[in-house]
Write a protein that binds this DNA or RNA. Structure first.
Lengths: 345, 345
DNA sequence: ACAGGAAATGCAATCGATTGCTTAAAAATA
DNA sequence: TATTTTTAAGCAATCGATTGCATTTCCTGT
């Protein structure tokens, strides 16, 4: 791990008795350089194993073809896919991505953002952490002249570009599907209500009940059940109620739904016969559980692509919209066996 | 998306009638600055919403507390967990991570590396792509004075730090477990043989057969079956043989194993009774299939931590080893129902 | 009150690449 | 051949922060 100093444009210039500016122009395909010298410079650069220093270049040029992405965790299918979608577009445009994980911690999120701001990225794309409270750090991004695009979990009150899911209507659709299948007492596993997405999903649930003249039963609504383990505990408690639910909508995640399923299996409760189960996110495992899980696909890769396109659209003066646009993507209810007791599949 | 120019140390200096160098010293907690002026500077920096420009700072200082990670895909559990492990350590040391995906393409891998080299990261951590052939781009990293650590999929012949799994012995253990369970005709789904890890897994398979006096049956060895779909196709072909296998070791991935399981279910072949199935990687879904899947846990988070620790150990003169160290981590065979026909679990 | 030394601050070069402006050389035109 | 135009290359400032060295300011003791 020693440092055999890297070649710079000065080294190339010196070797060829040229001015560094000419080298720079040659390397940047400037038109004001003769073909012969350009070739010569390129060849020499190759020989000296020259690699550009983008820090110097960016510093001088005052901009940076780099976009920062901050997500709670990259090992969740949803986020990994959004990132894949973003990358698909940015890669083609020659932009680079810096991916950071907040690990669901606001403190960490702030650190990530600081790093990205210090790096002077051109844009920060973020889905906020679970314990998100204040949005000062997000405001600050804009004050630094850096574009900000929020997705999925967004701070509503903050005026930025946003790409979100229509959580409410999809949640409503899911619950109405359960009702259509004849489920009467539908329990709801809810996520942290400081996050917009979970508020919306709950709103959809409540709306569906109201719309169908069904009562809201407080004891069937369980807070913060968004891991497999928490989902399992919640389910145990629910099923031990004097009047247990006949369906559980794990609006937090498929992992929670998995916990529900595990407990049902353990207690010998048949799914979907005695208990309907619906998850959220369309994680890959939902296709292979027994029974397969009804869930909601968020079109994550499309979301990613949309986000990146939005950025480039605003970057380009000819396509710019100007005011902060909000794109709402319609998720899709994926009906599988865990909620089908009419056997219509 | 306009640019309200950012405050620099010059702005702070001007406002306070000080020299930029003093501002720099104050912001870096240098001891050669009086407490009063430091406080003053810090306060003013806050007021002006000053954010350091790390490009300028890194350029001047000639180093960069940033580490680049290149993996085929971040949405595979294994890689996501390794990254999580790396981050756990680097975060504490105040280093930042730039994560890049090669998407299993060598061309893309080279681009990623170029970006990282241009950014002058202090270290590149890589697991090579599936179509990896030449290692020139890896050699180049070292020539640029950047530390290089390979993990999992490594270029054997290249002398670098490496953190790998002992694939061979674990593969051997898996096959011996199958043999112990009474399976006689064990098929093998192999991965691209240009990657060391798949060569090693195959070696373990062959060794196990040899050791137990069992013949190597070429028709039971299937090339490049490493997705769910390819695994399914391979399985169909295998099971239609006049003399089909009674076990399939999907050494490529749990996804392939999933394909195997799907076909077995479809064909009404009982698992583990008529067919034993073993996967590789301990993806989270392996616990929840029916039957649960025997697989191999690679201790991915530990790998990540080990990698990062290795880097910092070498960075520190007092703990430096000097020559390129290779750490081999022992994976763990996780025995579940898909291979247990003796019912001993 | 003053020399001597420590502490705080200023000055200016530097990191590597870019770019507006100027100059030199080559080519085109008269 | 002389003059204009075009093309190519050089010069020097710049991006923002850091740092060795020089200078000034402030104490301290006598």
């Amino acid at each position: 791990m020693k440092q055999p100093k890297r070649a710079t444009i000065y080294d190339i210039a010196k070797k060829l008795n040229l001015n560094p500016s000419s080298v720079s122009r040659a390397l940047n395909n400037s038109s004001t350089i003769s073909i012969t010298t350009r070739e010569l410079i390129l060849k020499t650069a190759e020989e000296l194993n020259y690699k550009a220093n983008s820090m110097a270049s960016n510093l001088r040029k005052g901009h940076n073809r780099t976009i920062g992405v901050v997500v709670p965790r990259i090992n969740q299918n949803f986020f990994a896919n959004v990132i894949a979608g973003i990358e698909e577009v940015t890669y083609q445009k020659g932009y680079n991505l810096i991916i950071c994980q907040s690990n669901e911690s606001a403190a960490r999120e702030i650190k990530c953002i600081n790093t990205l701001v210090n790096q002077d990225v051109s844009c920060i794309i973020i889905s906020v952490s679970a314990d998100f409270e204040a949005d000062d750090h997000l405001r600050n991004i804009k004050e630094q002249g850096i574009s900000l695009i929020q997705f999925d979990r967004v701070a509503d009150e903050l005026d930025t570009f946003k790409v979100t899911n229509d959580n409410e209507s999809t949640s409503l659709a899911a619950v109405e599907h359960l009702i259509a299948e004849g489920y009467q007492r539908i329990a709801f596993l809810e996520g942290p209500q400081n996050l917009n997405i979970f508020r919306q999903r709950k709103a959809g649930y409540l709306k569906a009940l109201r719309k169908n003249g069904m009562p809201v039963i407080p004891e069937l609504i369980v807070e913060n059940a968004w891991t497999k383990e928490l989902g399992a505990v919640a389910t145990k408690n629910l099923l031990e109620l004097p009047n247990p639910p006949d369906a559980i909508f794990a609006s937090t995640s498929d992992f929670a739904a998995l916990g529900v399923l595990a407990v049902a299996n353990e207690m010998n409760i048949s799914v979907p016969g005695q208990l309907g189960i619906c998850g959220y996110s369309n994680e890959s495992f939902t296709e292979i559980t027994t029974p397969t899980l009804t869930t909601i696909d968020q079109h994550s890769t499309l979301m990613g692509k949309t986000i990146a396109q939005l950025y480039f659209q605003e970057l380009d003066v000819t396509t710019r919209v100007g005011k902060h646009k909000v794109v709402n993507i319609q998720p899709e209810l994926i009906i599988r066996k865990s909620t089908l007791r009419t056997g219509s599949l």
